[in-house]
């Protein structure tokens, strides 16, 4: 029993709890966005487990592949694989197993949902991490696409087909992800440079990166409001989303007109709050 607890404690940092939870929550919000009576607890639980397993699996596989560069960066050098606390082969097996279980579970729920979750995993692990991350700063685009897959999977599971709302929700996440990743790359620019990972900051400079963050945030809010209108969210929730979108717009414009470290921090934090709130709106506003 102690051994199992020890292993769980060792593996917990590999799962990136907060990021994984947020992505799983987007998937559930995508499902709930299709309104009752599609609320079906066994299906919702199935979606939860398949998303949690596949996202955790892909996160472990990313860390397995990136363990050499993680060891070079101050922010990540204490991760279990980079610091040698977990044997790489063991992590690879766990990552593959979780990914397989997640994708298989999704295929059992609905083949199209399974295909979307598999695409997300493939884009994240193969295209983003293995092929592009060390070669091009544009790799984040693929990171964004894979990040948008859970919400699309949830929506497709609920409505049974790919629809405009699902694409807009997915675009909302896609445009939000650069805000998250680029803010990190600004704050840890020297770390990334030491590890030889190309970033927007190293390729285009800090001003262009901040402008990109601001534009991406604006596009994210447009996509979210568009999706909310498409879902038929009640007026009250639409007002709330409108207020929060205006807030995001103010932060983005302020940051692109007068970029500061403090402003970038504010935009990063607000964008995270915005995304979480949007998911709540999609979750409850359509019910």
């Amino acid at each position: 029993m102690n051994r199992i607890t020890h292993h769980i404690k060792e593996y917990a940092p590999l799962l990136k709890g907060l990021q994984t939870s947020l992505l799983v929550f987007t998937g559930l919000a995508g499902y709930m966005s299709a309104r009752c009576p599609v609320l079906n607890l066994p299906t919702l639980a199935g979606l939860f487990f398949s998303l949690a397993a596949s996202i955790s699996g892909s996160t472990i596989l990313n860390m397995w592949w990136d363990r050499d560069i993680d060891a070079l960066m101050q922010r990540t050098c204490n991760r279990p694989l980079a610091s040698g606390k977990i044997p790489p082969r063991q992590a690879l097996v766990v990552g593959l197993l979780l990914s397989f279980l997640g994708v298989a579970g999704a295929f059992l729920l609905n083949p199209l949902t399974g295909l979307i979750i598999f695409s997300g995993l493939f884009f994240d692990v193969v295209i983003y991490t293995i092929l592009l991350k060390r070669r091009s700063c544009w790799s984040i685009l693929w990171g964004g696409i894979s990040g948008g897959m859970p919400i699309l999977a949830g929506r497709v599971l609920a409505v049974g087909a790919l629809d405009l709302v699902g694409v807009l929700l997915s675009l909302g996440i896609l445009f939000w992800i650069p805000t998250h990743i680029l803010s990190f790359s600004i704050r840890n620019a020297s770390d990334y440079q030491r590890a030889g990972v190309p970033t927007f900051v190293s390729a285009y400079g800090i001003h262009a990166t901040r402008l990109t963050i601001a534009i991406a945030s604006i596009l994210a809010s447009i996509a979210m409001v568009g999706a909310a209108i498409g879902i038929g969210i009640s007026w009250g929730y639409l007002r709330l989303l409108g207020v929060l979108s205006i807030g995001l717009l103010i932060y983005s414009v302020a940051e692109s007109v007068k970029p500061t470290e403090r402003g970038a921090f504010g935009l990063y934090k607000f964008a995270s709050l915005y995304m979480l709130s949007s998911m709540f709106v999609m979750f409850f506003g359509g019910v």
Binding site: V243, L244, G266
Partner: peptide, 22 residues
């Protein structure tokens, strides 16, 4: 009134989030 109150409470919401962040 809905529009006016939305501006008032919306501003209150954004201001409190602003202080929550900074």
């Amino acid at each position: 009134p809905i529009l006016a109150f939305t501006i008032a409470f919306g501003m209150l919401l954004l201001t409190s989030l602003f202080f929550l962040i900074f």
